[in-house]
Amino acid sequence: MATAAPRRRRSLAAALRRYGWSYLFVLPTFSLFVVFTLLPVVQGLVLSLQNARVTGGEFIGLANFETLAADPVFVQALGNTILYATVVVAAQITLALIVASLIQPLGTRAHVFYRALFYLPLVNSAILVAMVWRWIFNANPFGLANTALGVIGLGPFLWIGSSDQALIAVILSAVLTIPGGGVVLYSAAMGSLPRELYEAADLDGASWFSKWRHITVPLLRPTTLYLLVIYTILAFQLFERVYIMTNGGGPNNATITIVQLIYSTAFQFGRYGLASAMAVVLFVMALGVALVQFRSLRSDVEY
């Protein structure tokens, strides 16, 4: 027992001698990670406990978090963010799965074509896309949504001009955009599913839907988990769409989100401590949701 520690030290030293050089390869990336990600996160945590302004700040404990809990605008931003994330993530994953499933049976050329087709819009500037959606959901009759609905005798609706409909318009703008990244990932994952399971199902006379429901969807759980985590984090970070479509928070703060509020609190109101506290809340939310998703969707199946 007394010799265990020196033996561990010796083996560690031996491992360092043998593999230490390999850490050099990791060093550049790790350094960038530390400087541009880890340190800002730590600094954000520190700032969240201060009444920091541009001139500096003092330690105030959890006072910023108490302020947030009592601030109706933050509570509204929190609610809007959660609602947006819930609806949009569910819709985008479903949509990506359906579209990937529809193009899966097609030939290789068609496959490549559709993957590219759905992925290409992602290279567009998010600002430009948001400006297009702003025009689509314009309250005036010449907005595209109102023009289209007018053909079937509906509307015109106020959309982004109304506090009741503005968040719906923002959510619709996200839901109606086919998530190209999800389609590509699902499509790639589907291509690597074991064929013998489908052959066995065919022998059993399973329908297309049964095979999709009982083989495809369960085997795609690792991809679904990945998309769920990524899309949730992206949805929590909603900013430019709201900023462009509704001039920030929209009528009566109807579309205000946490990141929008962080931006205005830090850069317009100069309250860096309070803004950092909001960022910490957002971080905890994203971490919590990711942990829950990992636990509930963890799959032991490897293929």
């Binding site: 009566n252 205005s264 317009q268 109101f269």
Partner: peptide
């Protein structure tokens, strides 16, 4: 603190009144 008063509280209040809420 005017910009905070205006953007965070006054404008939404004004909007709520103008919308008839």
């Amino acid at each position: 603190t005017w910009s905070e008063i205006d953007q965070k509280y006054l404008r939404p209040a004004r909007d709520a009144a103008l919308e008839g809420k």
